[in-house]
């Protein structure tokens, strides 16, 4: 495999981390198409991306956990399903030829595009009744909400539906080397009824462990190149750090429109390459 030079990979990874953090979609979804455009084979791009996902998710999860917003029980329960999914997903990628991977990635990009388009049109309500299974699993909690100036108490629900769906999210993460945070947040929000803040931060915690399961498969397959990993990890983490800082200053609408455009272009590009044969 031809390895692109350090001075090209670093800025691309920086940009991917930056845009990923600003949009809340994570770096992988930009990083992988960009790396393949630089000539990296898609399986190596997936392997390096999922390694960098450990760094970005752990970095941002650390702050949220210390702010007591993350729900550790919800995280641990759902991790049981995502890590098994990630192992299966990574195994499928190893066995697959590149073209279906391009098409699958394009499909996920289109899905993210749709999710982002529809986001913000729902509001969270806490009054839903909790079912017996979710109560047995003790999936509830409270967190200090600084915007509301009070502690918000919540009870999760439908864990029996959330768990198998999270297995699917794990497959996507392992298969395509992304955090699949958007999918996880959707499951937390819409199926399990977690408050938005809890769902994004808990998803962050789950992403790190899920990415580790996927990474171990790719490491064993010899797909992790340190010469590529070094600039990607540095760039993505630094970019994510800058993106998170800037997030508060830019209007949400501007970020969304910009990201919708990027997602659409990359989705079409990946699908076309999958069909024509990259």
């Amino acid at each position: 495999m031809a390895m692109p030079p350090f001075h090209l990979v670093l800025p691309v990874a920086l940009l991917a981390g930056f845009v990923g953090a600003m949009s809340g979609m994570g770096g992988g979804i930009i990083l992988i198409p960009a790396l393949t455009l630089l000539g990296v084979d898609i399986k190596h791009a997936i392997a390096i991306s999922i390694l960098s996902v450990i760094a970005t998710s752990s970095g941002s999860a650390s702050a949220y956990v210390r702010d007591h917003i993350t729900n550790l029980k919800v995280g641990m329960f759902l991790e049981m399903f995502t890590i098994v999914g990630a192992l299966a997903g990574a195994a499928i990628t190893l066995a697959s030829s590149p073209r279906p991977l391009y098409i699958a990635f394009g499909g996920v990009l289109l899905g993210s595009w749709l999710a982002l388009l529809l986001a913000g049109h729902k509001s969270w309500e806490s009054a839903a009744p909790q079912d017996g299974i979710t109560r047995w699993l003790e999936l509830e909690g409270s967190y200090p909400d600084q915007a509301l100036g009070r502690t918000v108490h919540y009870k999760a629900r439908r864990a029996y539906l959330g768990a198998p769906l999270m297995f699917g999210a794990g497959i996507i993460a392992g298969l395509l080397g992304i955090g699949a945070g958007a999918v996880k947040v959707l499951i937390h929000d819409l199926v399990m009824g977690l408050p938005p803040k809890v769902s994004t931060t808990t998803s962050n915690l789950i992403i790190g462990v899920t990415a580790l399961a996927g990474t171990s498969v790719y490491l064993a397959a010899g797909l992790i190149y340190p010469g590529l990993a070094a600039p990607v990890i540095l760039g993505v983490v630094l970019g994510a750090f800058l993106g998170t800082r800037l997030l508060v200053r830019l209007s949400n609408q501007a970020v969304r429109s910009f990201f919708l455009l990027i997602l659409a272009v990359l989705a079409i590009e990946m699908i076309v390459r999958g069909i024509r044969g990259a």
């Binding site: 760094a55 752990s58 970095g59 999860a61 650390s62 702050a63 956990v65 210390r66 007591h68 993350t70 550790l72 790190g208 983490v237």
Partner: peptide, 15 residues
């Protein structure tokens, strides 16, 4: 709260 802090510092320190 202490556990949250510990988990947070493990993640931050590792990265």
């Amino acid at each position: 709260l202490e556990m949250d802090a510990l988990v947070g510092y493990i993640l931050l320190g590792g990265v």
